[in-house]
Nucleic acid binder design. Structure first.
Lengths: 337, 337
DNA sequence: TTGAAAGCGCTAACAT
DNA sequence: ATGTTAGCGCTTTCAA
């Protein structure tokens, strides 16, 4: 009969008693410092064996309390449920573990208050570093970290008080726009301006992507229609609504679209499928973000895939070298298929 | 000039000194136990204000070491980068926080050794509960938890030693198969058997889904071709290879497919697009899993969406009621659009 | 080659 | 109404 009744926890004192030795010997053996302490390998073996038998696991809370460095590294992320952030957290965990660090991650649902609360909680857990990913107010978090004895980095969205690692939004968007314009030319036989949709006009990334969007049009001598730049927010519904309003007022669906994320793309595609006008139009699309199923959708969609591994490599380089503290903006080139 | 030089950490002793009081008063105030201790609200306010000013954050390590319950709850998850697991972890975090618990999550990449190691690490961090999601060897983890003073639950994939919360795979698959068969009948004018593809024949979920797949065929009087049940693994490439082999040997693409996950669907769709035979066939598809972009793909695809919120509700019900410990199998109905 | 002991920051029982 | 104190389990210096 299994009552799922967990045992009382074994401590190093229990192990010491069982092995007829002291807690400090047990501690040393279990930490691999026993050559340094010149403990007999006989004793070491005995202790190891007993620990195994008892299913002993260190109490990290006690261990960390005593130690000076926690080797805990935290990450704040807005959402888990899309491929971009999903792959960020997955890669972050793998790379952290490879470096002997313990990653803790928490999602903040794009909620500024939750961000601050989560940052505080992470500090309570003695993180040595805190990575704010796509944070609404990264500088606030940097301040908290500074006060709380941790270092911080920004990822995806930049801040002004800590080093930021982001995609090269300007040249990524420029290239994505260029490709999409050419796809459209191939299809329609003429260069026609695109509609920009999705994102917040106030965020750095969107602003930079709009700049790249403009540059690519200019490069090819195409004139943008200013009211065709819709930084309407990222949410699917927002994109769908904005597109619907535009199409209603103009009577037709633009021939080409620059969509600012897969999140927004979800709304755009849904609207296209559900609207009578939309369903017959097959606009050429460029999307700043990547998703495997989008890659498989009917009309080819050009995608700029953000280089998650590259960005996190940069993050860990800074963490490992300890970095002098000069705050920098590191821009990583997105990948085109 | 900002050297990113983090401060030395403030302790309750520092606060006590600043407030001209004792550490225990500070502790009591900061934990909200001050009415019980009948501390003057004057002192309480003063302490709170000073703590705020100093950017104080408790040291969880110290606090937990002293406390008896950690309120930490762990989750092991195979991957982050798909919508199903992404939404599991996101919902898990939200629901845990709502209940005043601190969630820690780690992904184990379907690697059995990593699973065990991660479980051990979680125990070191004093988790009170550990949820094994889609684990390859959940019973092993339950044993570890039992020995390490934690309780455990299985999610998504069942185990025999702890309560398991999973989708109702049998009736979900039966309904999904029924719907797909009828879609196929609508398209082709006849009832034709489907191909089952994806998953591991050895896992409980796949076995149950195959059982449901058979039942639905039987319900409608359709005869299954036994060699059309391909439990070839979940990975996209495995599904693509299996489908390719079958089509090569039979010379045609089956008219209807039951795909065992979005992961496998990725491989199936990629193969269909890339192969000369596949590109002209538009098989009717049912997928046991949900993804927003799949919902938008050309041919309608029937999807069984696993009820993530429902499953986690069941998880937290057990955690909150403390539950007697009798191990049960709880099956949650998937959702059809 | 090993053990004793101090103390990490905090909580809670016990004093006052 | 508030302070003193004894640990929580571990690491590490110091002494033997």
């Amino acid at each position: 009969m299994n009552h799922q009744r967990p045992q009382k926890k074994t401590t190093i004192y229990d192990l010491a008693e069982l092995a007829g030795t002291s807690a400090s010997a047990v501690s040393a053996v279990l930490n691999g410092n026993w050559k340094k302490r010149r403990i007999s390998s006989q004793l070491a073996d005995k202790i190891t064996k007993i620990a195994e038998e008892q299913g002993y696991a260190v109490n990290m809370q006690a261990s960390l309390l005593r130690r000076d460095k926690s080797r805990i590294i935290g990450m704040l992320v807005p959402k888990y449920d899309n491929r971009y952030f999903g792959s960020i957290v997955e890669t972050f965990e793998i790379m952290a573990r490879e470096r002997g660090l313990f990653p803790i991650i928490t999602c903040t649902l794009r909620n500024p208050e939750l961000e601050v609360e989560a940052a505080r909680t992470m500090l309570s857990y003695q993180v040595e570093w805190l990575i704010s990913t796509g944070a609404t107010d990264p500088d606030r978090i940097t301040d908290l970290c500074l006060a709380g004895g941790a270092r911080s980095l920004n990822l995806d969205l930049p801040g002004s008080k800590a080093t930021s690692i982001i995609s090269d939004n300007f040249s990524g968007a420029r290239e994505l726009t260029r490709r999409t314009l050419l796809n459209l030319q191939r299809k329609k036989g003429a260069l026609l301006p695109l509609l920009f949709i999705g994102g917040r006009g106030t965020d750095h990334n969107t602003a930079e992507r709009i700049r790249g969007f403009r540059a690519a049009h200019q490069d090819l001598g195409v004139t943008i229609e200013e009211h065709h730049i819709l930084a309407c927010g990222y949410a699917p519904e927002k994109a769908a609504d904005a597109l619907n309003a535009l199409v209603t007022s103009e009577g037709r669906v633009p021939a080409g679209l620059f969509v600012n994320s897969t999140i927004s793309l979800e709304g755009v595609m849904r609207w296209l499928k559900s609207s009578p006008v939309g369903v017959n139009s097959q606009p050429v699309i460029g999307c700043f973000d990547w998703d495997p199923f989008v890659a498989l959708m009917g009309h080819e969609i050009e995608m700029a895939r953000q280089d998650v591994a590259g960005m996190l490599k940069a993050v860990f380089d800074i963490i490992e070298t300890g970095d002098s503290g000069a705050r920098k903006l590191i821009e990583i080139q997105p990948i085109f298929a």
